[in-house]
Design a binder for these strands. Structure first.
Length: 846
DNA sequence: AACGGACGGGG
DNA sequence: GTGTACGTCCGTT
């Protein structure tokens, strides 16, 4: 076995690494198309010009055995060499043990190769085998484009910047969402050169012409990339259906290749998930759906409340000031009366798509310059099986090394994940959050934990290189002028390198991943737990108080007197003692924290913002008055205002009793699922509050899906609360924030009460709800006796009540004596590589 | 309550 | 714990 270190010419620039960037220098490839016959079409861009060339390759597959070729008559028996490219089937032996995929089989034609292997396998196994892909333990193969790129070491976009690509977005406006019931009446086009136009079909008779014109326009402008928002979920399927119905061929392909839009159903299973997705491909053009890019972005960022194009564009600051907004269902009727409005609207759509592409596609663009896959595939590929594995396979074939033998799953193996600890319950002030950056890939690099079957050490090599590149581009992005093309490029490349985070999951993937190694994955999490334990021990040793820890991060309380600088210094000092290659980051500081249960806590920022994490601090009932109470009470608790908590509770109870709260505050909102007929049929056996409420109000008609508010009245009946006309209830978030900013004193329900005369709700019922569904969430902050005294629904005093001043919250306190050790004293401990294993941190694992 | 399934997005 | 992800909301026991 030759280790990677000896294969590599050390010391070169990272971009010299052929395992990461391929080895063929061909510049300007913008699109690749290949088929099983061994034909590959390359479209290369040189400035404004694009040329197409036809290449031939020998379709290949790797196999663990030659047995399925044994039945061949001698003239077609393979020879162990690459010479004679005309030979029907040949093989090459790769370096590797028995059982590994050590035979690289190739043929002039991929269909022939498949037929021969299927016949041989059927004979060998004594049963009908339909496809080699049904024999994963014997054969490993990839798609034609991947075969070509892995063989040649070519990659997309060499020498190109993102802005060199010619991208075109088109957006269809239709009379309905369903192509069986509606038609296309308008198409807006925008491309990256600034070209824009509209195609219109005012009458149904003009629709076929619109489709033909759209195709002609795309062929004429000849973009490398076709984009839109939900392109593969809406525009392409709609276009395809209408074109078929009207018998218009969708000639969208580039000169030199097959002309028609192609689509196929991709069915697969990813662990517990099963998915069917329609894929679209056009020879010579890459298909990009920016909705998918948005989903990926938000997977990590978690900032988008909605994935509607309009909301997303606003979030990224892409919406024009004069942007036209129309409700989807109103688009066509608006067009008939005010066509200009819809034209404007449709152009705004495609412009925003262009902006999204610029903002979000940088990472996929960078990855397409590395992985042996087309840009469109890279954009919709997962980082593990979609990027890392193709990189590994290409590297192994390049090195002439066999792909590892598929592992047999060990059913008895139990994988242990990261550690999670609830270390303290109650209320803390002055809380710091720190976490280890890229914990798992860092551990893999630090302790050289790679898959045992990775004889070349390639995964760790790729991890090293990707990490170096990430740091380089991160720094470069910071130095470049903000918003510049250069900054965008570096930011995209930096983001692409986050692929490293998939390496751990890939190893743990069991049988699906070629280079899986569950034991290695387990070693990573074990090291992770040790590191977390060591981190907790180090924090305790320094006198601060850990509150909750999860896999790679920890919340802890520091002395009240500390400044942010001191907090940062502590994190830096503790980080310095972590194993080399792991970095502890200061993530943030909070004025207070209520630690309720594992992964369930509330935080109060220094800006007065309340953050609530975990389902246990939320009620599924979510009556407005209860939600509001809980938020206010959490704020009061975290500001050590016991009197405020009690006042908040008693005031709410009193407002219920005196019916100062309108019914809308106690009502819960439900969605109707039964038609009036359905409900009337089941009513006698099974009565349901929401429908009874409607019927009692004289409503005998409703639609399924309608949301109604209902509440329980004194008599036990349910009552419907009709929506008020545009009397939008105040946003509770805003309201709470304002209150906090104004003064620490929370409460002010009365003045927000909308004009609503209904107050006939069941007071006792809602008082009970307040206690059992909401106040109970605060129990962790009080002793049992204090809690009972504070939250009494009857509001009665008792002779044995303690004065509030005598009460103490259940504090999580950091001793005031804790002080920072000067850095000089810690220096002696430098070189202390291993995390402290004597940690007692696991004393209360959950 | 606890669990299972659909949905999101597009006109 | 993998190519489609993962809360949230619904409906059912």
């Amino acid at each position: 076995m030759v280790h990677i270190a000896r294969l590599l010419d050390e010391g070169g620039l990272p971009t010299d690494d052929e395992f990461l960037f391929g080895w063929d220098p061909t510049p300007g490839i913008v699109s690749i198309w290949a088929d099983r016959s061994g034909k590959a079409l390359l479209w290369r861009r040189e400035g404004q010009r694009v040329t197409c060339s036809t290449e031939h390759f020998r379709p290949w597959i790797v196999a663990t055995t030659l047995d399925d070729l044994a039945h061949l008559p001698s003239p077609v028996l393979p020879a162990p060499s690459d010479r004679g490219a005309q030979a029907t089937i040949t093989y090459r032996e790769l370096d590797g043990p028995d059982g590994s995929y050590r035979y690289l089989l190739s043929a002039r034609d991929g269909h022939l190769l498949e037929r021969v292997l299927v016949a041989g396998a059927s004979r060998r196994l004594g049963r009908e085998v339909n496809r080699v892909s049904n024999l994963p333990e014997t054969y490993y193969g990839v798609g034609p484009v991947e075969q070509y790129l892995m063989l040649t070491g070519k990659v997309c976009f060499k020498g190109l910047a993102y802005d060199d690509l010619h991208r075109l977005a088109f957006d269809l406006e239709t009379t309905a969402l369903d192509p069986q019931r509606g038609r296309i009446f308008l198409a807006a086009i925008h491309d990256s050169t600034g070209f824009e136009t509209l195609l219109e079909a005012a009458t149904p008779e003009q629709e076929a012409q619109l489709i033909a014109d759209l195709c002609a326009l795309i062929r004429e402008h000849d973009p490398d990339v076709i984009e839109n928002y939900n392109l593969c979920g809406f525009d392409f399927p709609f276009l395809q259906y209408r074109a078929a119905a009207l018998k218009v061929p969708l000639r969208l392909g580039r000169a030199g290749g097959p002309p028609l839009l192609d689509s196929y159903e991709e069915a697969g299973s990813a662990g517990p998930y099963r998915f069917r997705q329609r894929r679209f491909s056009i020879a010579g053009r890459e298909v990009i759906d920016t909705l998918e890019a948005v989903r990926r972005y938000d997977f990590a960022a978690r900032v988008l409340p909605s994935y509607r194009l309009k909301e997303v564009a606003k979030h990224f600051g892409l919406a024009a000031p004069d942007r036209v907004y129309l409700e989807g269902s109103k688009v066509y009727e608006t067009y008939r009366e005010h066509p200009d409005l819809v034209r404007h609207y449709a152009l705004d759509d495609v412009r925003e798509v262009d902006g999204l592409s610029r903002r979000l596609m940088g990472a996929a663009f960078a990855l397409a310059g590395m992985a042996p896959r087309g840009y469109g595939r890279v954009a919709s590929a997962g980082p593990a099986m979609g990027i890392l594995e193709p990189l590994l396979v290409r590297a192994y074939l390049r090195a002439g090394t066999a792909l590892p033998q598929p592992i047999t799953p060990d059913a008895s193996w139990r994988h242990e994940g990261g550690a999670t600890y609830l270390l303290a319950e109650g209320v803390a002030e002055h809380v710091v959050k720190a976490d280890v950056a890229s914990l798992y890939p860092s551990l893999m690099r630090t302790y050289q934990i790679g898959p045992k079957c990775d004889a070349l050490g390639m995964l760790l090599h790729l991890l090293d290189r990707l990490t170096e590149l990430r740091l380089f581009h991160k720094a470069a992005a910071r130095q470049a002028p903000p918003g510049s093309m250069e900054a965008n490029q570096h930011e995209g490349t930096q983001a692409a390198m986050k692929t490293i985070n998939a390496a751990y999951g890939y190893m743990g993937a069991g049988t699906m991943a070629l280079f899986a190694d569950p034991q290695a994955a387990d070693t990573v999490t074990r090291r992770g737990r040790e590191l977390l334990d060591g981190l907790l021990a180090a924090l305790r040793q320094r006198g601060v108080v850990p509150i909750e820890a999860d896999t790679d991060g920890v919340y802890f309380a520091v002395p009240a007197t500390w400044t942010q600088q001191e907090e940062r210094t502590l994190v830096a000092q503790i980080g310095a003692r972590l194993p080399t290659g792991t970095r502890l980051e200061y993530e943030g500081r909070y004025r207070a924290m209520l630690s309720h249960a594992i992964k369930n806590y509330a935080l109060l920022t220094y800006d007065g913002e309340l953050i609530v994490r975990g389902g246990a601090l939320r009620s599924s009932r979510s009556e407005p008055f209860g939600e509001r109470f809980l938020r206010q009470a959490l704020l009061a608790v975290m500001q050590d205002d016991i009197a405020g908590v009690q006042r908040c509770f008693l005031d709410t109870v009193q407002m219920l009793r005196q019916r100062m709260l309108p019914a809308s505050e106690v009502a819960s909102r439900v969605r109707l699922s039964k038609t009036p007929q359905d409900y009337l049929a089941s009513r006698t056996t099974h009565s349901e509050g929401q429908y009874e409420a409607l019927l009692a109000a004289g409503r005998t008609q409703w639609t399924v899906g309608e949301r109604v508010r209902t509440y329980r009245t004194q008599s036990g009946a349910w009552r419907w609360l009709p929506e008020e006309r545009e009397e939008a209830p105040l946003s509770f978030e805003e309201q709470d924030d304002n209150e906090v900013l104004v003064n620490g004193n929370v409460l002010g329900l009365a003045e927000t009460t909308p004009i609503d005369e209904r107050r006939d709700y069941d007071v006792e019922q809602y008082a009970r709800v307040l206690l059992t569904s909401y106040a109970s969430r605060l129990a962790v902050a009080f002793t049992a006796e204090d809690f009972q005294q504070l939250f009494r629904v009857d509001g009665q005093m008792s002779l044995f009540d303690r004065p509030l001043e005598a009460m103490q919250l259940r504090w999580i306190r950091c001793p005031a004596t804790t002080s920072l050790t000067p850095l000089s004293l810690l220096d002696e401990e430098k070189g202390h590589e291993q995390p402290n294993k004597s940690a007692d941190a696991g004393s209360s694992p959950s």
